[in-house]
Design a protein around this nucleic acid. Sequence first.
DNA 1: AGCCATTTGGTTGCGTACAATTGAATTGCG
DNA 2: CGCAATTCAATTGTACGCAACCAAATGGCT
Lengths: 158, 158
Amino acid sequence: MDTPPTTTDWLRLDQQICFSLNAASRAFGSVYRVILKDLGITYPQYLVMLVLWEHGDLPVKKLGEHLRLDSGTLSPLLKRLEAAGLVRRERSARDERSVEVRLTEQGVALRERAERVPRRIAAATNFDVDEISALRARLDQLTSALDAAVHAELPDEG
Amino acid sequence: MDTPPTTTDWLRLDQQICFSLNAASRAFGSVYRVILKDLGITYPQYLVMLVLWEHGDLPVKKLGEHLRLDSGTLSPLLKRLEAAGLVRRERSARDERSVEVRLTEQGVALRERAERVPRRIAAATNFDVDEISALRARLDQLTSALDAAVHAELPDEG
DNA sequence: AGCCATTTGGTTGCGTACAATTGAATTGCG
DNA sequence: CGCAATTCAATTGTACGCAACCAAATGGCT
Protein backbone atom coordinates (compact mmCIF):
# COMPACT_ATOMS: atom_id res chain seq x y z
CA MET A 1 0.00 0.00 0.00
CA ASP A 2 2.95 2.31 0.19
CA THR A 3 5.44 0.92 -2.27
CA PRO A 4 8.04 3.27 -3.71
CA PRO A 5 7.30 4.53 -7.22
CA THR A 6 8.43 2.17 -9.98
CA THR A 7 9.86 3.24 -13.28
CA THR A 8 6.46 2.61 -14.80
CA ASP A 9 4.98 5.14 -12.39
CA TRP A 10 7.57 7.66 -13.47
CA LEU A 11 6.73 7.11 -17.07
CA ARG A 12 3.05 7.57 -16.31
CA LEU A 13 3.47 10.63 -14.12
CA ASP A 14 5.70 12.11 -16.73
CA GLN A 15 3.05 11.70 -19.33
CA GLN A 16 0.54 13.47 -17.22
CA ILE A 17 2.36 16.75 -16.62
CA CYS A 18 3.17 17.62 -20.17
CA PHE A 19 0.24 15.74 -21.58
CA SER A 20 -2.22 17.68 -19.44
CA LEU A 21 -0.60 20.89 -20.55
CA ASN A 22 -0.76 19.86 -24.16
CA ALA A 23 -4.36 18.73 -23.86
CA ALA A 24 -5.40 21.99 -22.21
CA SER A 25 -3.65 23.96 -24.89
CA ARG A 26 -5.42 22.06 -27.63
CA ALA A 27 -8.76 22.29 -25.83
CA PHE A 28 -8.30 26.05 -25.76
CA GLY A 29 -7.57 25.88 -29.45
CA SER A 30 -10.92 24.22 -30.09
CA VAL A 31 -12.79 26.85 -28.12
CA TYR A 32 -11.00 29.69 -29.88
CA ARG A 33 -11.61 28.08 -33.27
CA VAL A 34 -15.34 28.22 -32.65
CA ILE A 35 -15.39 31.70 -31.16
CA LEU A 36 -13.02 33.27 -33.69
CA LYS A 37 -14.77 31.76 -36.70
CA ASP A 38 -16.93 34.89 -36.92
CA LEU A 39 -13.87 37.10 -37.10
CA GLY A 40 -12.27 34.95 -39.78
CA ILE A 41 -8.96 34.57 -37.97
CA THR A 42 -7.19 31.77 -36.12
CA TYR A 43 -5.97 31.85 -32.56
CA PRO A 44 -2.32 32.66 -33.35
CA GLN A 45 -3.52 35.38 -35.72
CA TYR A 46 -5.72 36.71 -32.91
CA LEU A 47 -2.66 36.87 -30.65
CA VAL A 48 -0.86 38.96 -33.25
CA MET A 49 -3.83 41.30 -33.47
CA LEU A 50 -3.94 41.62 -29.68
CA VAL A 51 -0.32 42.72 -29.63
CA LEU A 52 -0.87 45.23 -32.41
CA TRP A 53 -4.01 46.61 -30.78
CA GLU A 54 -2.13 47.04 -27.53
CA HIS A 55 1.20 48.33 -28.77
CA GLY A 56 0.44 49.80 -32.18
CA ASP A 57 2.47 49.15 -35.31
CA LEU A 58 5.57 47.04 -34.73
CA PRO A 59 8.40 45.48 -36.70
CA VAL A 60 8.29 41.70 -37.09
CA LYS A 61 11.14 41.34 -34.61
CA LYS A 62 9.28 43.06 -31.77
CA LEU A 63 6.13 41.12 -32.55
CA GLY A 64 8.13 37.94 -32.23
CA GLU A 65 9.52 38.98 -28.87
CA HIS A 66 6.06 39.65 -27.50
CA LEU A 67 4.74 36.33 -28.76
CA ARG A 68 7.85 34.17 -28.40
CA LEU A 69 7.66 33.33 -32.08
CA ASP A 70 10.30 33.53 -34.80
CA SER A 71 10.11 34.68 -38.38
CA GLY A 72 9.57 31.14 -39.63
CA THR A 73 6.21 31.18 -37.94
CA LEU A 74 5.36 34.86 -38.28
CA SER A 75 6.20 35.48 -41.93
CA PRO A 76 3.55 33.21 -43.45
CA LEU A 77 1.07 34.11 -40.70
CA LEU A 78 1.48 37.83 -41.40
CA LYS A 79 1.05 37.23 -45.10
CA ARG A 80 -2.28 35.59 -44.36
CA LEU A 81 -3.32 38.53 -42.20
CA GLU A 82 -2.28 40.82 -45.03
CA ALA A 83 -4.26 38.77 -47.53
CA ALA A 84 -7.24 39.12 -45.19
CA GLY A 85 -6.80 42.91 -45.31
CA LEU A 86 -6.18 43.33 -41.59
CA VAL A 87 -2.53 44.29 -41.82
CA ARG A 88 0.03 45.84 -44.15
CA ARG A 89 3.73 44.97 -44.24
CA GLU A 90 6.08 47.77 -45.20
CA ARG A 91 9.84 47.93 -45.31
CA SER A 92 11.11 50.47 -42.85
CA ALA A 93 12.63 53.51 -44.55
CA ARG A 94 15.23 53.90 -41.83
CA ASP A 95 16.32 50.26 -41.72
CA GLU A 96 15.67 48.35 -44.89
CA ARG A 97 16.12 45.04 -43.08
CA SER A 98 13.12 45.72 -40.91
CA VAL A 99 9.48 45.18 -41.90
CA GLU A 100 6.86 47.25 -40.11
CA VAL A 101 3.54 45.54 -39.50
CA ARG A 102 0.75 48.12 -39.57
CA LEU A 103 -2.94 47.74 -38.82
CA THR A 104 -5.24 48.65 -41.69
CA GLU A 105 -8.55 50.38 -41.04
CA GLN A 106 -10.16 46.96 -41.19
CA GLY A 107 -7.63 45.71 -38.68
CA VAL A 108 -8.42 48.54 -36.30
CA ALA A 109 -12.13 48.06 -36.83
CA LEU A 110 -11.92 44.36 -36.02
CA ARG A 111 -11.01 45.21 -32.47
CA GLU A 112 -14.55 46.22 -31.67
CA ARG A 113 -15.86 42.84 -32.73
CA ALA A 114 -13.06 41.13 -30.80
CA GLU A 115 -14.04 42.73 -27.53
CA ARG A 116 -16.67 40.12 -26.85
CA VAL A 117 -14.16 37.29 -27.17
CA PRO A 118 -12.41 37.42 -23.78
CA ARG A 119 -15.60 37.20 -21.78
CA ARG A 120 -16.80 34.25 -23.81
CA ILE A 121 -13.50 32.49 -23.27
CA ALA A 122 -13.52 33.25 -19.57
CA ALA A 123 -17.02 31.83 -19.36
CA ALA A 124 -15.91 28.66 -21.12
CA THR A 125 -13.12 28.03 -18.63
CA ASN A 126 -15.49 28.05 -15.68
CA PHE A 127 -12.64 29.60 -13.63
CA ASP A 128 -12.89 32.93 -11.85
CA VAL A 129 -10.38 35.72 -12.30
CA ASP A 130 -8.28 34.81 -9.28
CA GLU A 131 -8.03 31.16 -10.26
CA ILE A 132 -6.96 32.18 -13.73
CA SER A 133 -4.33 34.55 -12.36
CA ALA A 134 -2.93 31.89 -10.08
CA LEU A 135 -2.76 29.35 -12.86
CA ARG A 136 -1.16 31.84 -15.19
CA ALA A 137 1.51 32.68 -12.63
CA ARG A 138 2.25 29.00 -12.13
CA LEU A 139 2.55 28.42 -15.86
CA ASP A 140 4.83 31.39 -16.36
CA GLN A 141 7.02 30.09 -13.56
CA LEU A 142 7.13 26.71 -15.28
CA THR A 143 7.97 28.27 -18.63
CA SER A 144 10.84 30.22 -17.09
CA ALA A 145 12.26 27.09 -15.52
CA LEU A 146 12.00 25.17 -18.78
CA ASP A 147 13.60 27.98 -20.77
CA ALA A 148 16.45 28.13 -18.27
CA ALA A 149 16.94 24.37 -18.51
CA VAL A 150 17.10 24.45 -22.30
CA HIS A 151 19.60 27.28 -22.29
CA ALA A 152 21.66 25.59 -19.59
CA GLU A 153 22.24 22.79 -22.11
CA LEU A 154 20.24 20.45 -19.89
CA PRO A 155 22.17 18.94 -16.98
CA ASP A 156 21.72 15.17 -16.93
CA GLU A 157 19.79 14.64 -13.76
CA GLY A 158 18.12 16.60 -10.94
CA MET B 1 -6.41 52.85 -7.72
CA ASP B 2 -9.47 50.65 -7.92
CA THR B 3 -11.03 51.45 -11.25
CA PRO B 4 -13.16 48.75 -12.89
CA PRO B 5 -11.40 46.77 -15.63
CA THR B 6 -11.62 48.34 -19.06
CA THR B 7 -12.09 46.40 -22.27
CA THR B 8 -8.39 46.77 -22.88
CA ASP B 9 -7.71 45.03 -19.57
CA TRP B 10 -9.97 42.20 -20.61
CA LEU B 11 -8.15 41.81 -23.88
CA ARG B 12 -4.83 41.72 -22.05
CA LEU B 13 -5.90 39.35 -19.29
CA ASP B 14 -7.43 37.12 -21.88
CA GLN B 15 -4.21 36.95 -23.77
CA GLN B 16 -2.38 35.87 -20.71
CA ILE B 17 -4.35 32.79 -19.78
CA CYS B 18 -4.21 31.00 -23.04
CA PHE B 19 -0.94 32.55 -24.03
CA SER B 20 0.78 31.34 -20.87
CA LEU B 21 -0.59 27.89 -21.50
CA ASN B 22 0.61 27.96 -25.06
CA ALA B 23 4.02 29.26 -24.08
CA ALA B 24 4.44 26.60 -21.42
CA SER B 25 3.43 23.92 -23.87
CA ARG B 26 5.97 25.12 -26.40
CA ALA B 27 8.67 25.48 -23.76
CA PHE B 28 8.07 21.85 -22.84
CA GLY B 29 8.39 21.03 -26.49
CA SER B 30 11.84 22.58 -26.60
CA VAL B 31 13.00 20.62 -23.57
CA TYR B 32 11.65 17.37 -24.96
CA ARG B 33 13.23 18.05 -28.33
CA VAL B 34 16.64 18.20 -26.70
CA ILE B 35 16.12 15.24 -24.39
CA LEU B 36 14.48 12.99 -26.98
CA LYS B 37 17.05 13.69 -29.67
CA ASP B 38 19.07 10.70 -28.42
CA LEU B 39 16.07 8.42 -28.88
CA GLY B 40 15.40 9.73 -32.36
CA ILE B 41 11.73 10.49 -31.73
CA THR B 42 9.62 13.61 -31.25
CA TYR B 43 7.47 14.41 -28.27
CA PRO B 44 4.14 13.29 -29.80
CA GLN B 45 5.85 10.10 -30.94
CA TYR B 46 7.12 9.64 -27.39
CA LEU B 47 3.55 9.95 -26.12
CA VAL B 48 2.47 7.19 -28.48
CA MET B 49 5.29 4.99 -27.23
CA LEU B 50 4.29 5.68 -23.61
CA VAL B 51 0.76 4.51 -24.30
CA LEU B 52 1.97 1.39 -26.06
CA TRP B 53 4.44 0.56 -23.28
CA GLU B 54 1.71 0.96 -20.72
CA HIS B 55 -1.20 -0.71 -22.49
CA GLY B 56 0.43 -2.98 -25.05
CA ASP B 57 -0.63 -3.25 -28.68
CA LEU B 58 -3.65 -1.15 -29.56
CA PRO B 59 -5.75 -0.24 -32.60
CA VAL B 60 -5.34 3.30 -33.89
CA LYS B 61 -8.74 4.23 -32.51
CA LYS B 62 -7.85 3.35 -28.93
CA LEU B 63 -4.52 5.10 -29.26
CA GLY B 64 -6.38 8.19 -30.36
CA GLU B 65 -8.70 8.03 -27.38
CA HIS B 66 -5.80 7.85 -24.95
CA LEU B 67 -4.04 10.77 -26.61
CA ARG B 68 -7.03 12.84 -27.75
CA LEU B 69 -5.76 12.67 -31.30
CA ASP B 70 -7.54 11.68 -34.48
CA SER B 71 -6.40 9.56 -37.40
CA GLY B 72 -5.42 12.63 -39.39
CA THR B 73 -2.66 13.21 -36.89
CA LEU B 74 -1.89 9.63 -35.98
CA SER B 75 -1.68 8.06 -39.43
CA PRO B 76 1.39 9.94 -40.64
CA LEU B 77 2.93 9.86 -37.17
CA LEU B 78 2.58 6.09 -36.97
CA LYS B 79 4.07 5.70 -40.43
CA ARG B 80 7.13 7.58 -39.22
CA LEU B 81 7.38 5.34 -36.18
CA GLU B 82 7.06 2.36 -38.49
CA ALA B 83 9.77 3.73 -40.77
CA ALA B 84 11.95 4.10 -37.66
CA GLY B 85 11.38 0.42 -36.91
CA LEU B 86 9.72 0.97 -33.55
CA VAL B 87 6.24 -0.13 -34.53
CA ARG B 88 4.36 -2.32 -37.01
CA ARG B 89 0.88 -1.57 -38.38
CA GLU B 90 -1.25 -4.59 -39.22
CA ARG B 91 -4.84 -4.88 -40.34
CA SER B 92 -6.84 -6.69 -37.72
CA ALA B 93 -7.98 -10.13 -38.88
CA ARG B 94 -11.25 -9.86 -37.00
CA ASP B 95 -12.13 -6.37 -38.17
CA GLU B 96 -10.53 -5.37 -41.44
CA ARG B 97 -11.33 -1.71 -40.79
CA SER B 98 -9.08 -1.64 -37.78
CA VAL B 99 -5.29 -1.29 -37.78
CA GLU B 100 -3.38 -2.79 -34.88
CA VAL B 101 -0.29 -0.91 -33.80
CA ARG B 102 2.28 -3.33 -32.39
CA LEU B 103 5.62 -2.65 -30.76
CA THR B 104 8.59 -4.23 -32.52
CA GLU B 105 11.50 -5.63 -30.53
CA GLN B 106 13.25 -2.33 -31.08
CA GLY B 107 10.19 -0.52 -29.83
CA VAL B 108 10.14 -2.60 -26.66
CA ALA B 109 13.87 -2.14 -26.23
CA LEU B 110 13.61 1.62 -26.50
CA ARG B 111 11.70 1.72 -23.25
CA GLU B 112 14.81 1.08 -21.25
CA ARG B 113 16.52 4.11 -22.74
CA ALA B 114 13.36 6.16 -22.22
CA GLU B 115 13.33 5.50 -18.51
CA ARG B 116 15.78 8.31 -17.83
CA VAL B 117 13.60 10.85 -19.57
CA PRO B 118 10.97 11.56 -16.90
CA ARG B 119 13.50 12.41 -14.22
CA ARG B 120 15.32 14.76 -16.53
CA ILE B 121 12.08 16.48 -17.43
CA ALA B 122 11.06 16.74 -13.79
CA ALA B 123 14.42 18.29 -13.00
CA ALA B 124 13.97 20.84 -15.77
CA THR B 125 10.62 21.99 -14.41
CA ASN B 126 12.08 22.85 -11.02
CA PHE B 127 8.73 21.79 -9.50
CA ASP B 128 8.36 19.06 -6.90
CA VAL B 129 5.98 16.15 -7.29
CA ASP B 130 3.16 17.73 -5.32
CA GLU B 131 3.33 20.99 -7.24
CA ILE B 132 3.22 19.06 -10.48
CA SER B 133 0.22 17.03 -9.32
CA ALA B 134 -1.65 20.15 -8.30
CA LEU B 135 -0.94 21.85 -11.57
CA ARG B 136 -1.93 18.77 -13.53
CA ALA B 137 -5.24 18.53 -11.66
CA ARG B 138 -5.94 22.18 -12.38
CA LEU B 139 -5.17 21.77 -16.06
CA ASP B 140 -7.36 18.69 -16.37
CA GLN B 141 -10.17 20.59 -14.73
CA LEU B 142 -9.67 23.39 -17.22
CA THR B 143 -9.62 20.98 -20.15
CA SER B 144 -12.87 19.40 -19.00
CA ALA B 145 -14.55 22.78 -18.76
CA LEU B 146 -13.33 23.78 -22.20
CA ASP B 147 -14.42 20.49 -23.75
CA ALA B 148 -17.85 20.89 -22.17
CA ALA B 149 -18.11 24.42 -23.53
CA VAL B 150 -17.23 23.32 -27.04
CA HIS B 151 -19.71 20.49 -27.00
CA ALA B 152 -22.39 22.74 -25.53
CA GLU B 153 -22.11 24.74 -28.77
CA LEU B 154 -20.78 27.68 -26.77
CA PRO B 155 -23.38 29.79 -25.01
CA ASP B 156 -22.87 33.45 -25.85
CA GLU B 157 -21.86 34.96 -22.55
CA GLY B 158 -21.06 33.92 -18.97
C1' DA C 1 36.96 53.39 -48.31
C1' DG C 2 37.06 48.27 -47.40
C1' DC C 3 36.01 44.40 -44.63
C1' DC C 4 33.40 41.61 -41.54
C1' DA C 5 30.36 40.15 -37.78
C1' DT C 6 25.71 41.00 -36.63
C1' DT C 7 20.93 41.92 -37.30
C1' DT C 8 16.66 41.07 -39.68
C1' DG C 9 13.29 38.70 -42.58
C1' DG C 10 12.47 35.23 -45.64
C1' DT C 11 12.47 30.36 -47.27
C1' DT C 12 12.57 25.43 -46.94
C1' DG C 13 11.72 21.16 -44.85
C1' DC C 14 9.72 18.45 -41.37
C1' DG C 15 6.35 17.31 -37.99
C1' DT C 16 2.24 17.96 -35.73
C1' DA C 17 -3.12 19.35 -35.32
C1' DC C 18 -7.54 19.22 -37.12
C1' DA C 19 -11.68 19.70 -40.30
C1' DA C 20 -13.67 17.51 -44.11
C1' DT C 21 -14.01 13.92 -47.34
C1' DT C 22 -13.50 9.22 -49.02
C1' DG C 23 -13.87 4.35 -49.06
C1' DA C 24 -13.93 -0.07 -47.16
C1' DA C 25 -15.88 -3.02 -43.66
C1' DT C 26 -19.31 -4.03 -40.31
C1' DT C 27 -23.60 -3.79 -37.88
C1' DG C 28 -28.41 -3.32 -37.31
C1' DC C 29 -32.89 -3.54 -38.75
C1' DG C 30 -36.79 -4.88 -41.26
C1' DC D 1 -31.12 -11.97 -46.69
C1' DG D 2 -30.53 -6.97 -48.27
C1' DC D 3 -29.79 -2.34 -47.53
C1' DA D 4 -28.96 1.84 -44.81
C1' DA D 5 -26.42 3.76 -41.06
C1' DT D 6 -22.28 3.49 -38.63
C1' DT D 7 -17.43 2.73 -37.72
C1' DC D 8 -12.68 3.10 -38.79
C1' DA D 9 -8.60 4.50 -41.08
C1' DA D 10 -6.58 7.11 -44.66
C1' DT D 11 -6.18 11.19 -47.36
C1' DT D 12 -6.42 16.12 -48.47
C1' DG D 13 -5.95 20.83 -47.42
C1' DT D 14 -4.86 24.50 -44.27
C1' DA D 15 -2.25 26.38 -40.54
C1' DC D 16 1.02 26.53 -36.97
C1' DG D 17 5.99 25.83 -34.77
C1' DC D 18 10.64 25.44 -35.23
C1' DA D 19 15.42 24.33 -36.94
C1' DA D 20 18.51 25.35 -40.52
C1' DC D 21 19.91 28.02 -43.98
C1' DC D 22 20.08 32.24 -46.94
C1' DA D 23 20.45 37.14 -48.55
C1' DA D 24 20.30 41.87 -47.86
C1' DA D 25 21.35 45.66 -44.93
C1' DT D 26 23.73 47.72 -41.16
C1' DG D 27 27.40 49.20 -38.11
C1' DG D 28 31.82 48.95 -36.26
C1' DC D 29 36.69 48.75 -37.10
C1' DT D 30 40.76 49.50 -39.37
